[in-house]
Design a protein around this nucleic acid. Structure first.
Lengths: 221, 221
DNA sequence: TTGCCTGTGTGATTATTGTCACAGACAAAC
DNA sequence: GTTTGTCTGTGACAATAATCACACAGGCAA
């Protein structure tokens, strides 16, 4: 059961919920529950069954694949207004998770039970359309990612990653390596190269982009 | 408009269509059209808009990402009974294709117009469920692929690819390289290694697996 | 201040993959 | 037969990335 305050924020983050008829909205809000998770929590992991459909109010989730040797690669990030499509996939395919989800910041999640999810999907065009779009976008992202991992060099991918963030970037080299699926040393070396080109300035846990245009050109060949 | 013979084959390949009410079935069959495409046809390509929802009667489609330098990597393969989820994604997200589809053999396709696709999706639980499952499966495949490309060595991926096919395998080294997103020479060299281990026997456009168990062990570390 | 812990820089070395440049082998076409 | 084109083998080399093994710097806490 949600408070009115939570409900308002939910409708603000998820405008498509406003299109649901009043009764459905009420039912949804009655069956949903709110969860708070601290940063760093493993929200879900490979081979776990799936609880329900999460709607993110605040914080975001890194969805990653972990390699046996400890390396990891970020598949995508879930931000408020989106939902973890991987979860939808589990719910719809009745399978288990195939990746790990990690809370990047503290999370505030509204969890929609599986039953309510299926009901909405059957009855509500707006909801269905929303879920389909999520799937569609993720599919596109993943295909783009496969392509990048298979065909692009790490320096290009790093450049692209940097310009996708807003300067100044507060992040460790290790975290960048984890997004790229590479090792910390490599990232450090490549960053040094960028700095020598005058494209970035570096500090402890901080990177300032000095020449975004040059980075961009470099990133897409 | 479909002939009765085509209709029967369609219902056989796509059992979920049988669950549609008679009227919907009739409408679907009335608006759909059949296409025949020779092997090697580029069925769709990046940045093309999308025509309709394809149902495969025979033949299959390789969905690939092409690199600027001519290399290519297979994302997945569409076989009869499935549909190209990428197309669904385009239809639903109203975006363009993000990959290329190539007819591996001659194709016989029933093309469902976009409008009919949307209608069915709204009205028919069976159809909707089918499409969701397609999405779900592809998502899983792609995540698996990303993981393999990022973390596995080529020899392991090649071994896995070989055991996924039925021996004797009729294929060129170049075609294997294209599935893996690598170069022909590398595949040739790795195969030579496998042959020296006694895991495979090689001939022109043919590979016989002699020790599937060893290959399998090698493939998953 | 003195440690400690985390984050970063760096060299040396290796492994893996890609690239180039051919040569030979085989099959189908002429 | 000869020719032609595709498929395969191979050596040499370059490029990229991974791994290992440290040194050092800065901030925080005892």
């Amino acid at each position: 059961m949600l408070t009115n305050e939570t409900k308002d924020r939910l409708l603000q983050q998820y405008p498509m919920l406003r299109e649901l008829p009043g009764a459905d909205q009420a039912e949804l809000l009655a069956t949903a529950s709110v969860m708070h998770l601290p940063a760093g929590t493993v929200v879900f992991d490979e081979n776990q069954p799936c609880q329900g459909f999460p709607l993110l109010l605040s914080g975001n989730i890194r969805v990653v694949k972990a390699a046996p040797n400890g390396r990891e690669l970020q598949l995508y990030r879930v931000i408020p207004g989106e939902s973890c499509i991987l979860t939808s996939s589990c719910l719809l395919g009745h399978t288990r998770y195939h990746a790990r989800g990690i809370a990047e910041q503290a999370l505030e999640i509204v969890l929609l039970p599986a039953a309510a999810f299926h009901t909405l999907l059957g009855k509500q065009e707006a909801f269905r359309s929303y879920v389909f779009h999520l799937f569609s976008d993720r599919l596109t992202d993943l295909m783009q990612l496969v392509s990048a991992v298979a065909f692009q060099k790490l320096d290009q991918r790093l450049a692209a990653l940097l310009i996708s963030k807003s300067s100044p970037i507060h992040i460790t080299h290790q975290a960048l390596a984890d997004e790229l699926g590479s090792a910390r040393e490599i990232v450090s070396r490549l960053l040094k190269g960028f700095a020598e080109q005058g494209w970035v300035k570096m500090g402890r846990e901080q990177i300032d982009i000095s020449d975004a245009a040059a980075l961009k050109i470099f990133a897409d060949l």
